[in-house]
């Protein structure tokens, strides 16, 4: 399997496991470990964990919210304000998780480089 894909899937897998016991920064730990253990090159260092968590969080909250007719998501989207649009809130959630994962993935890679 393609190394990037493995990295991508491992990040999601670890985030899912850690998310059961750790606070929100479980995604940072997941990306840090994956970045360290399965180092990628260049922009992929950031982009792969970013996309992995962007999709993981985005899909997860879409599932939770669509099962409840987006009642709360619409209200929170009004609060931010995101025009009462639940999809924009889902995208924002994905970006938040993605940023956290992307930066810690990069840190993981840097730590990997340091070890050599």
């Amino acid at each position: 399997m393609n190394k990037t894909l493995v990295h991508f899937l491992t990040t999601i897998f670890l985030a899912g496991i850690f998310g059961l016991v750790l606070p929100w920064w479980s995604v940072m730990i997941a990306a840090l470990i994956t970045g360290f253990a399965l180092p990628l090159e260049k922009v992929k260092v950031f982009l792969t964990p970013f996309l992995a968590i962007f999709l993981y969080w985005g899909i997860y909250c879409w599932v939770l919210s669509s099962n409840n007719d987006f009642i709360l998501a619409k209200k929170i989207a009004r609060l931010f304000p995101l025009d009462e649009n639940p999809y924009l809130l889902i995208v924002l959630t994905g970006i938040v998780g993605g940023l956290a994962a992307g930066t810690s993935g990069w840190l993981g890679k840097e730590l990997h480089t340091l070890r050599k």
Partner: peptide, 18 residues
């Protein structure tokens, strides 16, 4: 705190239910 608030495991998405 957006991480706490928006993450689907413990954030507000967990309140999206009866």
């Amino acid at each position: 705190p957006l991480g706490k608030f928006l993450n689907p495991h413990t954030g507000i998405w967990q309140n999206e239910t009866n």
